[in-house]
Computed example of a mutant assay.
Amino acid sequence: MSLDFHPTKEDLIFSCDSSSEIRYWSIKNGTSAGVFKGGATQLRFQPCFARILATAADNFVSIFDVETQSCRAKLQGHKNQVHSVCWDTSGEYLASVSDELVRVWNIGSGSKADCIHELSCPGNKFRTCIFHPTYPSLLVIGCNENLEFWNITENKRMTMHAHEKLVSALAVSNTGLVASASHDKCVKIWK
């Protein structure tokens, strides 16, 4: 369902499947190096801190310590399945997206994580999100045909028609470009 490279161990890639298994693989020899339970929809490593992994499953997000394979926190508050998670570049904030709700969490030390911002849009179809690399308080959200730009600190939104179908994936470059992929079979680059 999802995968992510380990931030510091170049030989490891992590994947999750619909059975809630998180498996890590040796890239050099192509074998499974270990497995533990906890992810189904998406997983993402926290930047800067190689041991923290956020995983989405059902209507919650788990924060795992990959070295101990233990759950540090379970982030709850979504009523529907969480489709996407993403970290800001500092690794301090995590965003989670379900159909009608986006939550931004402050991931503290230990097992504490607080929801600090929430965007609720009944009837919307949020699917994916990414923090903008050069504007840290701007969250880009992929929806049905649109991109939502949410300035978290000012709680202001701007909607832009982007595709003819659901925006299913987003990526950012270090130079500030945003890429969107959609079920309309197009990938677009935004400046």
Rank of each mutant, 00 (worst) to 15 (best):
L3I: 13
L3G: 08
D4N: 09
F5W: 15
F5N: 12
H6M: 03
T8Q: 13
K9I: 05
K9H: 14
E10F: 12
D11M: 07
L12W: 15
S15N: 05
S15T: 15
S20L: 12
S20H: 10
S20N: 08
E21N: 15
E21P: 02
W25V: 00
S26K: 14
I27F: 14
I27A: 03
K28T: 14
G34H: 07
G34F: 08
F36S: 13
K37V: 09
A40N: 04
A40H: 01
A40D: 04
Q42A: 10
Q42S: 13
R44Q: 10
R44W: 05
C48R: 10
F49A: 14
F49G: 13
F49C: 15
A50D: 07
R51I: 00
L53K: 09
T55R: 04
A56H: 09
A57W: 01
N59M: 03
V61D: 07
V61A: 10
S62V: 03
I63F: 06
I63Q: 01
F64R: 05
D65G: 07
V66A: 03
T68I: 06
T68S: 11
T68Y: 12
R72G: 01
A73H: 06
N80A: 11
Q81C: 03
Q81G: 00
H83K: 06
S84N: 01
V85Y: 04
V85H: 04
D88W: 04
T89S: 07
G91A: 03
Y93I: 04
L94Y: 05
L94G: 04
A95R: 10
S96D: 06
V97G: 00
S98G: 01
D99L: 15
D99S: 12
E100D: 07
E100H: 09
L101I: 08
V102T: 02
V102W: 08
W105A: 00
I107E: 02
I107D: 03
I107K: 02
I107F: 01
S109L: 12
K112W: 00
A113S: 09
C115P: 13
H117R: 11
E118C: 13
C121E: 14
C121V: 13
P122F: 08
R127K: 00
R127H: 01
T128N: 06
I130R: 15
I130K: 15
F131Y: 06
H132P: 00
S137W: 03
C143V: 01
E145W: 01
F149R: 06
W150N: 08
N151D: 15
E154W: 08
E154R: 11
N155M: 08
M158G: 10
T159C: 15
M160A: 13
H163M: 00
H163T: 00
K165S: 12
K165R: 10
L166K: 02
V167G: 11
S168K: 08
L170R: 07
L170S: 04
L170Q: 04
A171K: 03
V172M: 04
N174H: 09
T175I: 09
V178M: 02
A179R: 10
S180N: 03
S182F: 08
D184S: 13
K188P: 01
K188W: 01
K188I: 07
W190S: 02
